[in-house]
């Protein structure tokens, strides 16, 4: 420890000010992004996995028509269906990890450390969720680029609407699931456990193969699971048939359940800092 930097004449100042926006700032956001990029598991499951799954499962079905309209007549392929599904998967995974990190860092005591700074807890959570959304956008963009490069053809509105729904609606529902999981099982293993939960919901919710190909019983169960609703809504622009009310209720219902659970656990958790 050095003696050179501060002299005795250099008095501690008592003239201070409070940072704006609860200390929200871009340096903090950048460092959050750097942490994500450094995490191999995050890169693998959020960015590489959706693109790889699309290429392995979606691309070979590029000539398989999704609807009764054949591809030659301008219809969409099963490849497009899987591309949107995989983009949604990446957005969900990213959002869930961001949500889970909030509670994990709380359990590790980092939030307590941050309480010694001007950072407002809301600004802290907002920074993590924004970083999660930015990462989700990269996942959606990456999958869509892979799709565009391998022959998926859609109208501009179909690209944009399906992409935005996957990114933002998937982000909203699964950020809250991540927060909930983080409070249920806080610790360093939260990320792995939530990944398994997402994979399970993705299978049953029809992300990896069309629900219409599932057995009847499984189809009925699938309609009640949390990935089903947002998946249907994200893929609705592809078929042009719209989505049924059940899908919207499913998405909003799960959002409400996850948000309520998070709020209850958060309240229990704030009895300590």
């Amino acid at each position: 420890m050095s003696t050179s930097t501060a002299s005795a004449t250099d008095r501690v100042s008592l003239e201070r000010s409070v940072p704006p926006l609860g200390a929200f700032n871009l340096t903090f956001l950048r460092i959050e992004m750097v942490r994500k990029l450094r995490n191999r598991r995050t890169i693998l499951f959020t960015l590489i996995f959706p693109v790889a799954m699309y290429l392995l499962v979606g691309y070979p079905q590029r000539n398989e028509p999704l609807t009764s309209t054949s591809i030659a007549q301008g219809g969409l392929s099963v490849a497009a269906y899987l591309m949107v599904s995989m983009a949604l998967y990446g957005a969900m995974m990213s959002a869930t990890q961001a949500g889970a990190a909030v509670a994990t860092e709380r359990a590790l005591g980092w939030s307590r450390q941050l309480r010694l700074t001007p950072l407002n807890p809301v600004a802290n959570v907002a920074t993590k969720l924004i970083a999660g959304l930015v990462f989700g956008l990269i996942a959606v963009g990456g999958t869509y680029i892979a799709g565009a490069l391998t022959g998926v053809r859609m109208d501009p509105e179909q690209w944009i609407v399906s992409g935005l729904v996957a990114w933002l609606l998937g982000g909203a529902v699964f950020t809250t699931l991540g927060l909930l999981m983080g409070y249920l099982v806080p610790g360093e293993n939260t990320a792995q456990i939530t990944s398994l939960v997402i994979v399970f919901f993705s299978f049953i919710g029809g992300l990896f193969y069309p629900i219409s190909m599932m057995p009847e019983l499984l189809q009925q169960i699938a309609a009640w699971t949390p990935v089903y609703g947002i998946g249907e809504i994200a893929r609705a622009p592809l078929t042009g048939e719209g989505f049924d009310l059940g899908a919207l209720l499913n998405a909003l219902g799960w959002l409400a359940i996850f948000a309520t659970g998070t709020a209850l656990l958060f309240r229990r958790d704030t009895k300590r800092v």
Partner: peptide, 8 residues
């Protein structure tokens, strides 16, 4: 650096 970004 992160901590520093939080203070004025």
């Amino acid at each position: 650096q992160l901590t520093a970004s939080l203070f004025t």
